[in-house]
Design a protein around this nucleic acid. Sequence first.
DNA 1: GCTTGAGCTGGAGTGCACTCCAGCATGCAC
DNA 2: GTGCATGCTGGAGTGCACTCCAGCTCAAGC
Lengths: 122, 122
Amino acid sequence: MTTFTPSQVVERTGFSLDTLRYYEREGLIGPIERTAGGRRTYRQEHLDWLDLVKCLRDTGMPISDLKLYTALSNDATTLNERLDLLERHDREVQASIDQLLEQQNHLREKIAWYRGQVGGGA
Amino acid sequence: MTTFTPSQVVERTGFSLDTLRYYEREGLIGPIERTAGGRRTYRQEHLDWLDLVKCLRDTGMPISDLKLYTALSNDATTLNERLDLLERHDREVQASIDQLLEQQNHLREKIAWYRGQVGGGA
DNA sequence: GCTTGAGCTGGAGTGCACTCCAGCATGCAC
DNA sequence: GTGCATGCTGGAGTGCACTCCAGCTCAAGC
């Protein structure tokens, strides 16, 4: 069974060593097995999980929600709750995309105005 | 000339009183005129400016860049620099929209998977 | 003229998500 | 078997953008 050292996980996930340890402390990822010497040995399933964590963090899910989601994931009877959580999050992501697009329009109007000023002054 | 009290500005811009004062301290908006008693009296141009500030903040421009942009706006010869700043920001906004859309795809795949599980278990 | 609410100041406090550090252990490379 | 990179822990520190607070002044209504 392939395992990964902390630095390999850093390389593959883009999280820093400190962030990986922080997430483990916070319960965003289950306790990672250790070598006899105490070093963490990650497995493929951890990398997969961290990809999901990255997706959710990058879309703005707070640590507290991720903590909840992780806890739910340890109980096979919580599929509906997890689905709810992700659907709610999806709606929030959609809302922030919409808001970003709307504000981008204002921004581009402003840019167009500046271009008129700059071009007109030539 | 119409003027606005601080609480009217709160209502119209959505910024809190404390945030308005913080922005003024930080130089994101020029010093606001005062009444004899020391109360701020905002004018329409301030509301317009605050709309732009809101647009830029909501799209993630840091306070430090807004500070710079505000400083540049007090010098009529800086049109090109301001345009540059906004264009750079627009590219960053586009990048975060793109990234959000991409991560939203992953999220929706996960949601679809959950729906399969939940539906399949019925 | 007094009450009540809005506003003032300077400075301290908050919440979030990391990030850094000291001091120590481990492990592979030679 | 020693040197150096990697990793460990607990806890302190950071950066950002506010947000709150005490103690005070001001203004409008009755």
